[in-house]
Design a protein around this nucleic acid. Sequence first.
DNA 1: CCTATTTGGAAACGATCATTTCCAAATTGA
DNA 2: TCAATTTGGAAATGATCGTTTCCAAATAGG
Lengths: 206, 206
Amino acid sequence: MDTLSTSTTAARAPGRPREFEIDAALDKAIVVFSERGYHAASISELKDAMGLAAGSLYKAFKDKKAIFLASFDRYKQVRNALLEAEIAKGENGRDKIARVLHFYAEASQGEMGRRGCLVVGTASELAVTDIDAAERVTRSHARTEALMESLVREGQADGTVGAGIDPIHTSKILVCVMQGMRVMGKTGDTTGQAFLVADTALRLLD
Amino acid sequence: MDTLSTSTTAARAPGRPREFEIDAALDKAIVVFSERGYHAASISELKDAMGLAAGSLYKAFKDKKAIFLASFDRYKQVRNALLEAEIAKGENGRDKIARVLHFYAEASQGEMGRRGCLVVGTASELAVTDIDAAERVTRSHARTEALMESLVREGQADGTVGAGIDPIHTSKILVCVMQGMRVMGKTGDTTGQAFLVADTALRLLD
DNA sequence: CCTATTTGGAAACGATCATTTCCAAATTGA
DNA sequence: TCAATTTGGAAATGATCGTTTCCAAATAGG
């Protein structure tokens, strides 16, 4: 609701001021939702992780689903910011694509890998039964696909990606590879394998 | 437990005989678990879908988790049989790999796509918190990876797959692509796209 | 026919779930 | 200083969950 006012110096609303930061609390909720899933994450667990009383939770959010959707949006915002910072370091189209793949490979390993991707988890557990969750997943996939397509075209323009490949088909398979890496990361096989997958995927750009 | 005795003509156990077939009931449970997930699938929902009373369910299975694991094992058995039948139709290594990718592409579309893959769902929802589920997911991934690796080597031997590619790296990325297709299928985008991904993935074999 | 054993199925069970209620505390505007 | 408003937090609420209990029905062995 008033997420915007946290970044401005707006006149404070009447009443006792909130004693916790919404975004910091959501960052804790993201961990719980990611590794336990939506249904297994109880309010009791969430409030403990977020350091809040149940009453305070329900004053900040309408219900459990609202907590989840806010966590999802926060997750996407944070991850997108990190991803774009990584892409900005790239020198050309191919290098930028490699950085995206490595970004996902990194997230698919160790503790973060076992924790899992909130988008993949939402697609698996909620997309069929909840339209709001499904819309967010669809939007996320579409955005990632559009990003990859633009990077492929950038690579073709600067000569680092083969002129003969199809940007649309290639962006679709790259998104599949990234989602698949996150699935594999949940059972955390031996470290380093995700980077092998990422580097092998680059062959699709030749 | 006595899954074996159903296929033999063993002397019947004492007591009233079971009036339903375990495998047929599990096939119904697979649908519920796949599209709702483990935690959202209630016993009430499962017994309705399986056409059983709760009491009968608990005489056939120890608890909800046992129903799930039996469903998972049944799912893998059925899908593996179908997949191997499809592979058997292939004329060479590359053709067999194409058939595997198309098998997953087909499953990633329409109603079956929305229903989802029980392996992917289990990886997302249960792998972190349940060791029995995690072991099954890991075993499934390992098996699929070994299968793809053998097909890559077969293709290299018969000349339909490039001699220079790494069978291990390539099998890993192919598994990622297949898992990723199943994730994308949950939000069921426009039909036919999964097959484009499958065909594009074949470029990894050149 | 009799006992032992197992199933089918309805009803009951305690536990846990998401959510609400209630009251003291903290703030704003008048 | 005095309403009005909002939060923090503990306790209570009703619903639903997974599971068990209970009894009639159906089989096998003797």
